[in-house]
């Protein structure tokens, strides 16, 4: 029996994934096909993001993994375990201390730096899929920059709900060329992709696609002239623990009193703010 290679994947596989990543960086927002590997995690549980992470990670990297804003969810913990077991790298929950952040459904509240890389897990990479089942046709639409389908989806939401109801995975136009699914992050996080200091990579394991937004790329959420893009509004609501209001909040119900309250969705950021408050006292 041969020993498990560093970061699980053999060098050949990692090289292929890196090539796909490089191509993705060269063509911002373009979905690059790659030969998704079998991993000891079921597809649909972040295998796309994980393969990107495994292909990139080096001995000196510090890894942070989050799932919907939480570092402690089973899924995040499992991914962290798998990576540390096969690489021995350090992990962290502090966004500032990480070199590599793999995330599902959120971009951290702490702004990422140019020396950091964010890897987002993608369930459905194709922004036109709900309009067109055929991959052959959606590929052509991208090639011809034919994105009326994406606008039609938004128009239909406005007809039905009088506003674009799409909460997560709200489509964006990257570098004025490709329309892209930003993965199911809330609209609140879309502006963070625009002109980001950090490189952002997207991995879709089941759909076998990798794509990228290189640093300092223009990223624009789709909108109509008279229906501009808006992020989730938490007007008058604050995090019960920290008092913060300029962050993405989770709505919770107090099981005892039945009252609704709000807390930061990004738990490590919330912890840090709380510790700062304790230290200040």
């Amino acid at each position: 029996m041969s020993a498990v290679p560093f970061a699980l994947l053999d060098e050949q596989s990692k090289r292929e994934i890196r090539r796909a990543i490089l191509k993705g960086i060269a063509i911002p927002g373009y979905q690059v096909p790659f030969a998704s590997r079998e991993l000891p995690i079921a597809r649909g549980w972040g295998t796309g993001g994980l393969q990107v992470t495994l292909a990139l990670i080096g001995k000196n990297d510090v890894l942070k993994v989050i799932d919907q804003g939480s570092d402690d969810s089973v899924n995040a913990v499992n991914i962290k375990k798998l990576v540390t077991k096969t690489t021995g790298v350090q992990t962290t929950t502090r966004t500032q201390d990480a070199t590599l952040v793999q995330s599902r459904h959120r971009i951290p509240e702490v702004p990422l730096r140019a020396d950091q890389v964010l890897v987002l897990q993608v369930p459905e990479p194709e922004p036109l899929r709900d309009i067109e089942r055929s991959e052959f046709k959606t590929k052509r639409y991208h090639a011809e920059k034919e994105y009326s389908g994406a606008y039609l989806m938004l128009f239909e939401q406005i007809m039905r709900y009088n506003q674009t109801s799409q909460g997560a995975d709200y489509p964006v136009l990257v570098n004025g060329r490709y329309v892209m699914n930003p993965s199911p992050i809330p609209r609140f996080d879309n502006p963070k992709i625009h002109q980001s200091d950090a490189l952002i990579l997207f991995g879709a394991g089941r759909e076998k696609k990798i794509y990228a937004v290189p640093p300092y790329t223009n990223v624009e959420s789709l909108a109509f002239e008279d229906y501009p893009f808006v992020v989730e509004q938490f007007e008058g609501k604050v995090c019960r623990e920290t008092g913060l209001s300029d962050v993405f909040l989770d709505e919770l119900t107090d099981e005892v009193t039945g009252e609704t309250y709000y807390v930061c969705n990004d738990t490590s950021y919330m912890q840090e703010i709380l510790q700062q408050k304790v230290a200040a006292k």
Binding site: E146, S148, F155, E156, E225, D226
Partner: peptide, 20 residues
């Protein structure tokens, strides 16, 4: 899709980006 959207589809395809 709603009938409204079906009709708007061709306008969107022709480049219209004004909902009203």
């Amino acid at each position: 899709f709603s009938s409204m959207s079906n009709i708007a589809e061709k306008q969107i395809a022709a480049g219209n980006r004004h909902v009203r």
